[in-house]
């Protein structure tokens, strides 16, 4: 199956899912970083030369650090995120899913020079197209990978019942695999984002779960929508309730 997810296993045996980032999002992040760097340099250019030659000296030092060590500093101290990456919600990790180290960060950022060749990361883009996890040369050498930072979704599940507590609880009549159970639950969770007709249609697909359902075959879907009757959907919600432990 085609996907961009890479799994890394922790020593504790937990699998981490790393979603690799291709050049689109990374390009935008890079652009934002360049804009920030450029802004700072323009600010310096505006202020520092007033201090005469000393100011120029500071300007040069500032340029050096901005150019070479700005990404390293942010990647090491801010969870692998430069400001641009933070805006795009992506981060640099080592290939095993741990935080990037000094050495790796320095390496991947020094090797930008090579990735940049011959013009505007052309080599970097080519390597990203060819490597499995969208890694540019610097990433390949430093053994790092750029992934989407996992953000915690709503924590509502801990507090509020997603499912209607009024809905009845049904025990499924056949044995369900893990994936099927999870799909039924995610059906219940996403159900209100689908249109009711589609939700009903989906529910009808799970035929074996709908035994002895009072089906009025003559009735068309529109009629049932008007009466807001969704027997199959309600049945699946009941099963989801059961699966989530509300028995």
């Amino acid at each position: 199956m085609l996907d961009t997810v890479k799994t890394a296993e922790t020593p504790e045996g937990v699998e981490l899912k790393l979603t690799c980032v291709s050049f689109y999002a990374r390009g935008v992040a890079w652009l934002l970083d360049i804009l920030i760097q450029g802004f700072i340099i323009i600010l310096f250019l505006f202020i520092l030369p007033r201090l005469g030659d000393f100011g120029l000296g500071l300007l040069y030092i500032g340029m050096f650090f901005l150019n070479w060590l700005y990404p390293v500093f942010f990647e090491v101290y801010f969870q692998g995120q430069t400001p641009g990456k933070k805006a795009m919600k992506i981060q640099v990790l080592l290939i095993d899913g741990t935080m990037v180290t000094w050495g790796a960060s320095l390496l991947r950022n020094l090797l930008r020079t090579v990735d940049f060749l011959p013009f505007f990361y052309a080599l970097g883009v080519m390597t990203m197209l060819m490597s499995r996890d969208f890694r540019r040369l610097g990433d390949l050498v430093a053994n790092t990978v750029v992934v989407y930072k996992r953000e915690l979704k709503d924590n509502l599940f801990l507090d509020e019942k997603i499912l209607d507590a009024q809905a009845q609880t049904y025990a499924p009549e056949i044995v369900l695999s893990a994936k099927e159970q999870q799909t039924i639950i995610s059906y219940a969770e996403r159900q209100n984002k689908l249109s009711p007709e589609r939700a009903e249609e989906l529910a009808l697909l799970a035929t074996p779960l709908l035994n002895d359902l009072p089906v009025k075959s003559k009735q068309s879907l529109d009629d049932r929508v008007n009466h807001s009757e969704f027997p199959a959907s309600d049945r699946l919600l009941g099963i989801a309730n059961y699966l989530m432990g509300r028995r």
Binding site: I174, T183, R198, L202, T207, P208, L209
Partner: peptide, 23 residues
């Protein structure tokens, strides 16, 4: 996929096929 729940559809179809076979 988001609007129509394709991933759900896929699993449900497989589910009913499997159940049918089993039966």
């Amino acid at each position: 996929t988001i609007l129509e729940g394709w991933d759900i559809e896929l699993v449900f179809r497989k589910l009913s096929k499997r159940a049918l076979l089993q039966k």
